[in-house]
Amino acid sequence: MAGEIIGDLKMDGIGTAAGGVYKNVALNGVCKVATDIEAQLIDADGRIRVEGHLTANDLDLDGTLDVSGGIRAGTAAIDGVITVKGAYSGQRVRLNGMLTVGEDCEVDVIEGEGAFKIGGLLNAGRIDLKLQGRGAAKEIGGESIRIGKGRTGAWQSIWQRMLPSFAQELIVDLIEGDVIELDHATVKVVRGDRVAIGEGCVIDRVEYRTELRKHPSARIGEEAKTNG
């Protein structure tokens, strides 16, 4: 979007705003943005809905954010629940909550804890996630991929018994990367250079180049060492 910067947008309470290009955007309350929105900083607290594309250098969310298009954000700090219909691309994501992306999610670094659901490929240079709920993606690719179970509190186990989607597990078709460390993961194929398969994993096939470490409780269908 090549519009000129028109100023700030500040909204408190319940309301609807037009989209457009802004410098700083502060949304507090139950807010809806009717079209595409672009800003240097978007600070969203509350229950926010964007009917269109969201572009920001910095995105700071506390609460829920629904975006009907895609997101392009330099850095994002997500405390709460973020749902994107389209694709997510950006540099850094710090997640504390739940991330749902309909298509691909491409970032340099994603770290934090919570749950995620990616409809397509999660492609990141570094993935460092502790699961508090379910992590699901069609594919994951990147340089360093570490996904494991987060800490378990008393409430966690009660929730898990009632709702299976609170189970702290990772479900992916294919994971490819240089350094891969997983636990409590159910994956069809894992391919990597140095692979560590931890506790509670069920993997159909592992292909590794340098080393494979596995926890005694991990179930691995086939394993193959590839050369190169």
């Binding site: 492609n123 240079g125 990147g142 340089e143 490819e176 990367g177 391919r191 990597g192 590839t226 050369n227």
Partner: peptide
């Protein structure tokens, strides 16, 4: 195939994903 490509060019999965990104 991706596997053959990586072996042939001597690159890693990570590099390939980075370039795609």
């Amino acid at each position: 195939s991706k596997k053959d490509l990586l072996e042939l060019m001597g690159i890693s999965y990570g590099q390939l994903y980075r370039w795609k990104r």
